[in-house]
Write a protein that binds this DNA or RNA. Structure first.
Lengths: 247, 247
DNA sequence: CGCGTATTTGAAACGCCTCAATGCTCGTGG
DNA sequence: CCACGAGCATTGAGGCGTTTCAAATACGCG
């Protein structure tokens, strides 16, 4: 059974991202309306979900996998401007061409709604509009946090920042605490990390090696990471160990 | 008469930012309600309007002047994460501590609403919530555009990007066309530009001198700028000359 | 006019990038 | 079962752009 097939006949009540997604505040009636216009689509790792400049015919939520928003300059320089995790929303009600490429970083399953009906539904469903506002404000905060990373942090701090975000998100979804060591698999290639951090992939590789040598992280293979001490990692990231990123 | 006094007794109907602000879509009833909870405050250039971490007791719109959102690391490195122009909204309904410092870059006049009443008003005024969503989505786009600037552009391109944004915004509010030469006063010091661009102030200065030497811009004094050819400037910014930034 | 602040300019140091070669892992086919 | 190739990752050497530190200059305001 494909990953998508798991979802095809499920209803919203069983949805794993229900409590965080754009539909989180909906009551039964509203869910039913949403359910009538939703459909699932899946994308393979590497596939482009939406091309910058294209018509967006649908909006939706990432249900499983990781997608990324990227901008590209004419000469090929690219910058990732957002990382879309399960429950994150894709698309922009009220605008019809996409401002960035949306790419599947891993295999991705999305819960889609045709854009027109969704917009109409939103107009008379304050719960959706309100939740979308909340989510957009959160994303804006995240984007601004990232501006500090891009503008002012060193390569080492950038890597530490990225690892600490992934580590904390991972710990939060898997319900493990933030004390003791955290273990996870990097969902990104070195190149994708570089595109996110505004670095070259060589620099990413070198800094990861350096963090490993200094005992801040441990690696098994290329992707399996252990963080023995999150506080230490966050110091390396230049964040004060309490506040920092809301994940 | 102070700048603030100009506004103190004015009503929303005369407001210069009415058509772009959070209240843009409000009808007469809604305006009246807003009017009953609004008040004006003014801030001098350099003053901090809101401190990061503080309670936010109000939200509001910038009516005149320029404010900036900045983040600061413990060691003093700072990154500006937003530039607030007249009509931009300050504050975040649904959250009560400020995530960044808000500083007056020039003298600023704000139209404020106490946060609680504003939130309540928003709950039963879809026009406000809807407009705020639109504005937040626009800001998110702007933040993401800026991530490309911070992550991937050279110092020269960064300066050109900033000048081109200011030039186009200025041309759009003063209703002049984008053809022919554009003239404006820089509202930012070299240091503020550096904080916005993730550079040092020396690099900003050098790159401005270089653009001047190459005839891309002309300077009279330190702040008065002439752009003889916007297309040329946008090439220098690395943007394709048609699309680029929606201002 | 003179002081304080903003800005410009210079020289040297440093960090990241570029180019290039090597290593590792995994899947495929001989 | 091993050889091979395709990606992905690591490592090295050298160059370039930006920062750092330092000093000189212009500007605005009393």
């Amino acid at each position: 059974m494909t990953v998508k097939a798991q979802f095809d006949h499920s209803n919203c009540g069983d949805c794993p991202i229900r409590h965080r997604a754009v539909c989180a505040r909906c009551d039964a009636d509203e869910l039913e309306e949403l359910e009538s216009i939703k459909y699932y689509r899946s994308f393979e790792a590497g596939q482009t979900i939406i091309w910058s400049g294209d018509q967006m015919s649908f909006v939706g939520s990432v249900v499983a996998g990781i997608a990324s928003l990227t901008q590209t300059m004419e000469d090929g320089r690219t910058q990732m401007v957002g990382l879309l995790l399960p429950s994150d929303f894709v698309g922009r009600p009220g605008r019809d061409t996409a401002p960035y490429d949306v790419q599947a970083t891993t295999d991705v399953v999305m819960c889609c709604f045709r854009k027109k009906p969704f917009e109409e539904l939103m107009d008379h469903t304050p719960h959706i509009a309100h939740r979308l506002l909340q989510m957009t404000l959160d994303e804006l905060d995240a984007a601004r946090e990232w501006m500090l990373v891009l503008g002012r942090k060193t390569a080492r701090e950038k890597i530490a920042s990225l690892l600490s975000i992934i580590a904390r998100r991972d710990a939060s979804v898997s319900q493990k605490g933030l004390t003791g060591s955290i273990v996870f698999d990097l969902p990104l290639t070195r190149e994708a990390m570089a595109d996110y951090l505004g670095l070259t992939l060589e620099t990413v590789s070198r800094q990861i090696s350096a963090l490993k040598k200094d005992g801040v992280i441990t690696l098994e293979g290329k992707r399996h990471v252990t963080i023995p001490d999150l506080g230490r990692l966050m110091e390396e990231a230049g964040d004060d160990s309490d506040g920092g990123f809301p994940v």
